[in-house]
Design a protein around this nucleic acid. Structure first.
Lengths: 206, 206
DNA sequence: CTAAATCTACCCCAAATGGGGTATTGTTTG
DNA sequence: CAAACAATACCCCATTTGGGGTAGATTTAG
């Protein structure tokens, strides 16, 4: 029996979800909330296995709610169910601790399947969301600054990112410290920054 | 008609995959390779839509192969199909440019479904793999250094991570530069490092 | 071939950072 | 309450970094 709570401020969608859950023999609805504030207060007492959460809500949003609840009771799994597939929102939700992210237009069977997958330790996502998430890993590889920076400059930035001092990089590459410094200065001009950490930010190494 | 190539050094599994693909009306097998070296040479000429790749192979492994081919022809999508669900291997594959990662014991239907999902722009993964990937995003949140560093120290490290100078942090927080420096020195001692970038590494902000 | 870009390396100097102290003021906790 | 911790802020001094040049050697591109 999977204990489920729903946090959704849209009444129509909330009612639909409730009906859907109640129709399942292996699920039990233990709470329904129309606001994140209310959910944050009550969920610690009812301890559901899974919380189905909307993100865009009046007052406290779903991300903040997940952050708080996940911190209080890490065992609860969150299935974000929203109309938005905005990239930032997806990653904010995942960082907050959500393990599933599906879109509201997914259809009933899909939602049920997602709940079960989540309960079994999986991470259900819409294919489109999954692709976004996966792409995040290969993104840093094909970066854009390869046009701007030379091979040597990138090499030196990479060692810089590891926390090495200029002189350490210099001995590694059999260069003078001054040469490493020269490269760094050229990098700063190209990236329009003025220190190592800013440079690492620009090229996505930070 | 989905054009598929297979790279797999295990003959039995390769034959099984070939039979499976050939049995599908909407798929067309355009190449089968028993080694990554051979695949790297030939695949650029046959231009499949999807390459089903093993990772553990004699000679060049699947990761290197994907890295090379993805770099040459970014349009090809890779479905990694392996017996290993080792964390490092999964992330290496994703970083190399694979968009799907399923286990060999997934079953025929599951493999077919994954190919179709990949072809449609999704990112098919075994639930267990998906969970690993998703967890990677929330991992940095529940870090261990909250016991070691004070609130103020974490705050200062966070501004440091943004590339701010000590004096900029000082004015932001209405402190003296010397105070910021003091905090940083205490941080260095606690983390056993000796500069900002190393410190950011230790706490996972880099 | 000439021009541009890259890699190398030096100069000087100022600013920022790191490492060693010490000290005052609260706050927390055993 | 005393001890420990946290936050603030100063001292001195060495090292590192950043910003400005210049310049030779090589490689690349027009």
């Amino acid at each position: 029996m999977i204990k489920i709570a729903i946090v959704e401020d849209n009444k129509i969608f909330r009612e639909a979800l409730i009906q859907l859950i109640n129709a399942q023999s292996n699920m039990h609805l233990v709470g329904e909330f129309a606001s994140a504030e209310y959910a944050v207060k009550e969920i610690p007492h009812i301890l559901p296995d899974i919380v189905i959460a909307d993100i865009e809500m009046n007052g406290m949003n779903g991300i903040e709610m997940i952050t708080i609840l996940k911190h209080t009771i890490p065992a609860i799994e969150f299935l974000v169910c929203t109309i938005h597939d905005n990239t930032d929102m997806v990653f904010d939700a995942l960082r907050a601790g959500a393990c599933g992210y599906i879109l509201k237009d997914s259809g009933s069977e899909s939602i049920i399947k997602s709940i079960i997958e989540l309960y079994n330790g999986g991470a259900p996502m819409s294919p489109f969301i999954a692709k976004k998430v996966i792409s995040e890993f290969s993104r840093p590889k094909q970066n854009n600054f390869h046009n701007l920076l030379t091979e040597r400059e990138i090499e030196i930035l990479q060692y810089t990112a590891k926390g090495l001092l200029n002189k350490e990089i210099a001995s590694l590459l059999f260069l003078s410290n001054e040469t490493v410094k020269s490269h760094l200065r050229n990098i700063y001009v190209k990236l329009q920054v003025s220190n190592k950490i800013e440079a690492l930010h620009k090229v996505g190494l930070l």
